[in-house]
């Protein structure tokens, strides 16, 4: 399907290797956040395999023509993972990798949360959680009215599903039978503060599992959605699930892909640790992370 282009080749990253691209994306995330001194680490790393699979295998897009009317749409509803999206867009050729150094800086196109008025290739502005699915729903409705055949993908966080607006959209999307709308939930199992400790437990809880006690898949199915559950770090499974969602567009049921991921995935000291939700790596930590990601690459080379 889609071949890698632009900066991917310039950086000599093997185009067919989604895992290598994801490691490169993770490096770019850690370096960009360290460089800007602000941003999020945990969410972008948990979503990286999903983003790479989407931009290099799933989405029908033209980086050189970001406003191509028939392109698939992608909305990062968990907008605080913006740097992850930017890293993948840079690798895909939307803009030079060097521009990532402007992340979060004044006048940059790469704002702390995605700003469609600044960066071509963004199909929505996001940042206030819970809103992206509604925009995707509107785009999917518009596609039907216009007779356009593209697919719309929206990525949410698991914690984000606590927002009530998500469930307005879940309900309305089902009422309109939008089989060409797909929600991907990055279920990384952590949120910033977390729930209180369960009765009988000490402390305030460990912030684990935004969905504890909630059967998200069952809830979505109850609203009329198709639900697929996958390993969100298995590139093959991600592509397969997205292809399945596209293939069932005529089913008149939107699809939700619940992707089990690990927050901070790919770097030993950020994996599964809530502290890295919005922490900045020190120079030493960034070097250590880079070395780890390089080592993995070398081992597989």
């Amino acid at each position: 399907m889609t071949a890698a282009s632009g900066d991917v080749e310039a950086n000599d990253v093997e185009a067919s290797d989604l895992e290598a691209l994801a490691r490169r994306g993770r490096q770019l995330v850690i370096d960009s956040v360290a460089h800007s001194g602000a941003g999020h680490i945990g969410g972008p790393l948990s979503a990286m395999d999903l983003l790479v699979a989407l931009f290099f295998r799933v989405l029908r897009i033209r980086p050189e023509e970001p406003h191509w009317p028939e392109r698939d749409r992608f909305i990062l509803s968990k907008g605080h993972s913006a740097i992850g999206l930017y890293a993948v867009m840079a690798l895909r050729g939307y803009f030079p990798v060097e521009e990532l150094a402007t992340f979060d800086a004044g006048d940059s196109r790469l704002q702390g949360h995605p700003d469609m008025t600044r960066l071509p290739g963004l199909d929505a502005s996001t940042g206030s959680l819970g809103q992206g699915l509604a925009v995707g729903l509107g785009i999917a409705l518009g596609a039907r009215l216009r007779g356009l055949g593209f697919h719309t993908f929206v990525m949410l966080g698991d914690g984000e599903t606590q927002e009530g607006m998500v469930w307005e959209s879940v309900q309305v999307a089902a009422k309109y039978g939008l089989g060409h709308l797909t929600a991907i939930v990055d279920c990384n199992g952590l949120q910033q503060y977390g729930w209180p400790a369960a009765p009988g437990e000490e402390g305030r809880g460990d912030r684990r599992d935004p969905l504890a006690g909630t059967r998200l898949g069952a809830a979505l199915e109850a609203f009329g959605w198709r639900v697929l559950e996958i390993d969100g770090h298995d590139s093959h499974a991600i592509v397969e699930a997205c292809d399945d969602a596209r293939a069932s567009a005529a089913s008149a049921r939107p699809t939700a892909i619940l992707a089990a991921t690990v927050k901070g995935r790919g770097v030993s000291f950020t994996e599964g640790r809530f502290e890295w939700h919005s922490r900045v790596a020190t120079a030493d930590e960034a070097a250590a992370a880079r070395a780890e990601l390089d080592l993995v690459e070398d081992r597989r080379a």
Binding site: A124, A134, V135, G138, I139, M165, E168, V172
Partner: peptide, 15 residues
Amino acid sequence: AEQNMVGVAAGLATL
């Protein structure tokens, strides 16, 4: 579902 309605309108406007 007014919040969703506003988001849907924003999505439609992009087309």
